[in-house]
Design a protein around this nucleic acid. Structure first.
Lengths: 224, 224
DNA sequence: CGAACGATTGACGTTTCTCAAGGCTGGTGG
DNA sequence: CCACCAGCCTTGAGAAACGTCAATCGTTCG
């Protein structure tokens, strides 16, 4: 279900952002807290809400019957996710770390679409998702582990800060399931990048990474 | 460029299908022949037309700078492709075999979108493309070669006939670049499926394949 | 303090890739 | 008609990449 209760605190608020600008009653937007590891929504569940990350991070993934997991996207602060034209979600979404989301009832949006502006907005979001999936196809199908990890670091840097100093919210296993690798291979690829002088670790938990040489990462990661 | 000339024959015609229903002048729809291997449009070229496969097949792909190729989709008879909200294509499209396409100037569509019906149609197509890409992510990231090839055969059977008797238009290399494998690995996977009794070859060129046991293929290919 | 979690590293096994050889088919020109 | 050639497919042997299993270490948190 979409709104598990006991790990979540509700605080209604009137937030203005993205799609949710169209909402006009206070009940439409809620701020909800999800503890690390909590499910936001499940595969095949009714898509009743649209979400935006206030703080934290969310992973969106599919599972095979034997438990293999493909993470399709990470949603970071500011990202809108859970948008679909269909009745049901096609992914499961979970909080990667303690996360605060804003959410809007989808129904409150449908009503507002008199001029088709919402349909166009929906289209533009779907196109962005499609573009991300398309570049991920190239990464998963053609790149080796070093290229995948380099591309991942560059993507995260771009989306988190762009400064070259990043703090990853996700574990090595999450990264592995995003890149189609194992966590050990991700760890070894990071070690190789460190030995090459392309990156450096700046804390004990190995989640803070400095991109010492983006140019070198760009050379490792072949562009299309 | 989008309309190479000497390998192509033009025949204007008034075809009614899909998106193109909106067109109302004879100049908007053309039937164009593309010889095997011909480019339909290139990555980053202006997206001036929308296409539908009349006969034949088209591959749509991205290249890395060193020549590695990821095929994102095959377009078969009846499929509409080349639809985008942007000015330029994000893929290159080539005829896999001798192919006849119908094409419509995109401009002739834009004019017709008074009621937003076209935007909704565009949205629904983009969503279909997104869904295909999403399941391809799972395949590329998590499945081994046997599972990939089994999934490929099931997809082709479904889209070509559904009867279990298929004639593949594409080479082993095309299949490999679609599945993120090498052509040798594809060939070996097919040989293994044959030994298992799941498929059979029915002609000398190894392009006609009979799915002797779809249930067995479904077991090999884990579902989400 | 001890347990749980996440990360790293090594040794080893498996899968896939690479390189090479050979076969089959269909088309072309003598 | 036949020889030849080019393209496609298969198969094998060895190499490389990646996965698996296991041990260890540091951190966090009760």
């Amino acid at each position: 279900m979409s709104l598990p209760s006991d790990k979540i605190t509700h605080r209604n608020s009137l937030q203005e952002f993205g799609l949710m600008r169209k909402s006009n009653s206070a009940e439409c937007v809620s701020e909800v807290f999800f503890e690390k590891g909590t499910k936001v929504y499940g595969d095949n569940e009714p898509a009743d809400y649209v979400y935006q990350v206030k703080t934290g991070a969310v992973r969106s993934f599919k599972l095979l019957s034997d438990g293999r997991r493909q993470i399709g996207a990470f949603h970071l602060a500011g990202d809108i996710f859970g948008v679909t034209t269909e009745k049901h979600h096609r992914f499961t979404a979970e909080a990667v770390v303690d996360t605060t989301l804003w959410l809007v009832r989808r129904q409150s949006l449908d009503l507002a679409d008199t001029d088709g502006a919402l349909t166009r907005e929906l289209l533009s979001m779907t196109v962005r998702n499609l573009q991300h999936a398309e570049s991920q196809l190239l990464l998963l199908g053609q790149k080796d582990s070093l290229e995948k990890v380099a591309a991942f670091l560059l993507e995260m840097d771009k989306r988190l800060t762009g400064t070259g100093a990043i703090t990853l919210p996700m574990t090595r296993r999450d990264i592995a399931d995003y890149l189609g690798l194992t966590l050990e291979t991700v760890s070894r690829a990071l070690a190789r990048l460190k030995r090459k002088g392309a990156i450096g670790f700046t804390d004990a938990t190995q989640r803070e990474i400095t991109l010492l040489n983006k140019q070198r990462l760009l050379v490792i990661d072949p562009q299309d």
